[in-house]
Simulated assay, not measured.
Amino acid sequence: MSDQVCLITGSSRGIGAASARELAARGHGVVVNHRDSATDAEAVAQEVRAAGGAALVVQGDVTDPGDVARMVDAVVGQWGRLDVLVHNAMTPFPVTSFADLSWEQLGTKLDQEMRAAHLLTHAVLPGMIDRGYGRLVYLSTGLSRRPRNGMIALGVAKAALDSFVRYVAAEVAPHGITANIVAPSTVEDTAVSERLPEELRAQLAAATPMRRLARPEDVARTVAYFASDDAAFTTGSWAPVNGGLIMP
Rank of each mutant, 00 (worst) to 15 (best):
C6M: 13
C6F: 03
A17N: 04
S19D: 03
R21Q: 10
L23Q: 14
A24R: 02
A25Y: 12
R26P: 09
E42N: 13
A43E: 14
A45P: 02
A45Q: 07
A51G: 10
A54Y: 11
V62S: 10
T63F: 09
A69V: 14
M71P: 01
D73L: 09
A74R: 15
A74W: 08
R81W: 03
M90L: 13
V95C: 12
T96V: 14
T96M: 10
S97T: 15
L101H: 14
L101W: 11
K109W: 05
D111F: 12
Q112V: 08
M114A: 02
L119K: 07
L120Q: 05
L125N: 04
I129T: 12
D130V: 11
G134D: 00
V137S: 05
V137L: 07
Y138V: 06
L139T: 01
S140Y: 02
T141E: 08
G142V: 12
L143P: 04
R145M: 10
G150N: 06
G150Y: 04
K158R: 13
S163I: 13
S163A: 14
S163K: 13
Y167S: 15
V168Y: 01
A169Y: 07
G176C: 05
I177S: 01
A179S: 05
I181N: 01
P184H: 00
E188W: 03
D189R: 13
S193W: 00
E194Q: 15
P197C: 14
E198S: 15
E198P: 01
E199S: 15
A202S: 14
L204F: 10
A205C: 02
A205T: 00
A205Y: 02
A207N: 11
T208M: 01
P209E: 13
R211L: 11
V219Q: 00
V223M: 08
F226R: 01
A231W: 09
A231R: 02
G236E: 06
N242W: 04
P248T: 03
